[in-house]
């Protein structure tokens, strides 16, 4: 089979549109995961033992079962209990929850890397726990977390093809559809691979410079 440039050009607009959807899925999923992950991490540090244990178990569960199963579960099992969600919404919930579990561990590591002395200094100038987190602890927990957060950003991006199983129109689904209609898989799949490669490499470089920038910005050399 020969590479067909004309076919490539023909399918390019559709592939680009799918790329936009993929980026959107990764972006929305990551935003959900980033916020929810922080809530998971903080919930595990409260004085309320039952809350801590429950969240710990939820995080373990989410990390120990396959993402694709979680996607199926939200999309196909939900309606049996009266929760019918569109593929997009179901997909974002599943992928957001799954990665929230991973990100909560990254945050937890970052928060725990801040020395006990910082908490004591917060008490000594009488900051409230919320002020201590927001002003002192989380800004210091960020730099050591950036690398891990970046890894999961690329990871979530590479996991978006799993959303094709419930019909979200992202790259993989577009490539499958194009391939099925034209009986040509070489070009669409190659484009998918290239798009993932380029965006992943670009993101990794961006994350590295962000990490350096944030360290400089926070005066931590």
């Amino acid at each position: 089979m020969q590479w067909d440039w004309q076919f490539t050009v023909e399918i390019l607009p559709r592939m680009l549109w799918a790329t936009v959807n993929t980026l959107m899925a990764a972006g929305i999923g990551y935003a959900i995961a980033a916020v929810l992950g922080l809530i998971f991490a903080m919930a595990q540090r409260t004085r309320f033992r039952s809350l801590t244990v429950t969240v710990r178990e939820v995080v373990e569960f989410l990390r120990s079962t396959p993402l694709v199963l979680q996607i199926f579960f939200v999309y196909y099992v939900g309606p049996e209990y009266g929760v019918s969600l569109s593929p997009w919404v179901a997909g974002m919930i599943a992928i957001g929850l799954h990665y929230a579990a991973y990100l909560s561990e990254v945050y937890r590591g970052g928060i725990e890397s801040v020395s006990k002395g910082q908490w004591e200094a917060c008490t000594a100038i009488n900051l409230s726990p919320a002020q201590a987190y927001r002003r002192i602890i989380l800004p210091q927990a960020l730099p050591p977390s950036v690398a891990g957060m970046g890894n999961y950003l690329i990871s979530i991006f590479k996991d978006t093809p799993m959303l094709s199983v419930i019909g979200v129109a992202e790259l993989m689904q577009a490539a499958n559809a194009i391939g099925g209609q034209n009986y040509r898989y070489l070009e669409p799949y190659t484009i998918v691979g290239l798009v993932f490669l380029i965006i992943s490499l670009f993101s990794a470089a961006l994350i590295r410079s962000f990490e350096n920038w944030i360290r400089r910005k926070l005066g931590m050399y």
């Binding site: 002395g117 000594a124 900051l127 800004p139 210091q140 005066g219």
Partner: peptide, 21 residues
């Protein structure tokens, strides 16, 4: 071990409590 806030300047360290608290 001083426990200054490393992400703040000397001045910001001294302003944090008065402003926030």
């Amino acid at each position: 071990h001083f426990n200054l806030f490393p992400h703040m300047t000397a001045l910001e360290n001294c302003m944090e409590g008065p402003v926030q608290v």
